Amino acid sequence: MHVCRNCTFYSPGVHYDCRETVEELVADKERANFCAAFSPRTDFASGGDKAAKARDAFNSLFGGIVL
């Protein structure tokens, strides 16, 4: 789904909140749109770090138990 907030070029504060040259403003950055410059983000690190920390905490508690 093309959503500005999921795009590599999304950057709040720059012109139209996009680092790519776009001609029209997309007012709602959380709704689907048809931007030709859309490139999906792959840097969802904040969620990944949380998951990794939770997994490590779980493994440190129950890592030695074999079922």
Rank of each mutant, 00 (worst) to 15 (best):
K29D: 07
E30S: 14
D28L: 11
C18M: 08
L67P: 11
V14T: 12
G64M: 10
R19W: 11
P12G: 04
T8V: 14
Y10R: 02
A32L: 03
S46D: 09
A27E: 15
R41W: 02
D56N: 13
T42G: 15
K50M: 14
L67R: 15
K53V: 04
F62Y: 15
F38N: 02
D49I: 09
L25V: 06
Y10N: 07
H15I: 07
S60G: 06
G47W: 02
V3G: 01
K53R: 11
V22P: 00
A51S: 06
F58P: 01
G64D: 14
L25T: 03
E20A: 09
T42K: 12
D17Q: 01
A54E: 10
H15P: 06
F58H: 06
T21D: 05
V3L: 03
D43V: 04
T21P: 01
A36C: 02
C4N: 01
E20S: 11
N6A: 09
Y10E: 10
C35G: 07
A36N: 08
V26F: 05
V66N: 04
S60M: 12
G48N: 14
D43N: 15
A57W: 14
A27D: 14
R19Y: 10
S46W: 07
R19K: 14
L61H: 15
I65Q: 13
D49G: 00
F38V: 00
